[in-house]
């Protein structure tokens, strides 16, 4: 994943906070946020994951004019059966290190590098293949804001 421009916006933070059921006014009320220690609206701890919205190639977002693998007339919109790729990948771990918490007005960019890969025999899903990605989010001054480590797992069959 490479995200060149992830503008942190107050409306996006508000919608994200609603989605995770967080009614803390620091995520939508600027006047209240001024009275808090951070002194402004900040992003909730897992908000950075929404950088996917700004990744032009993010594969889990339908793209205009391209086939989409979700259901329509048929259970999948793909004419070729998927090779067990999409729909078999699960998120195994996610870790964040906060150098600071992003706030509206920041413009972040992200660069991802692959980390380790390993295999494990699963109890319920056959062989499990793990792979790690490390993403560094930097701000408009090129300062490190968040370091993220994500571990994905591919299963041979859906867990029972």
């Amino acid at each position: 994943m490479a995200v060149n421009k992830f503008p942190i916006e107050a409306g996006h933070i508000m919608m994200f906070a609603r989605a995770v059921g967080d009614k803390n006014p620091i995520y939508y009320d600027e006047a209240y946020a001024k009275t808090t220690e951070p002194g402004s609206i900040i992003a909730p701890p897992t908000f950075i994951q929404a950088s996917a919205q700004f990744d032009p190639d993010y594969y889990l977002r339908p793209k205009i004019g391209e086939p989409w693998f979700g259901s329509g007339k048929n259970p999948t919109g793909m004419t070729q059966p998927s090779e067990g790729g999409v729909g078999r990948g699960l998120h195994a771990e996610q870790h964040f290190e906060y150098h600071r918490h992003p706030r509206p007005g920041d413009v972040l960019k992200a660069e991802t590098r692959p980390g380790k890969t390993w295999e494990k025999e699963g109890k319920r899903g056959g062989k499990l293949k793990f792979s790690e990605n490390i993403t560094e989010y930097r701000d408009q001054n090129n300062e490190l804001v968040i370091t993220a480590r994500s571990v994905g797992v591919m299963t041979e069959k859906a867990p029972e």
């Binding site: 803390n24 620091i26 808090t36 220690e37 951070p38 900040i42 701890p45 897992t46 699960l90 998120h91 195994a92 771990e93 996610q94 870790h95 964040f96 290190e97 906060y98 918490h101 480590r149």
Partner: peptide, 12 residues
């Protein structure tokens, strides 16, 4: 508290 987390990680 707000803005106090320095690390947060989970396994699903």
């Amino acid at each position: 508290g707000d803005g106090r987390l320095t690390k947060y990680g989970v396994r699903f």
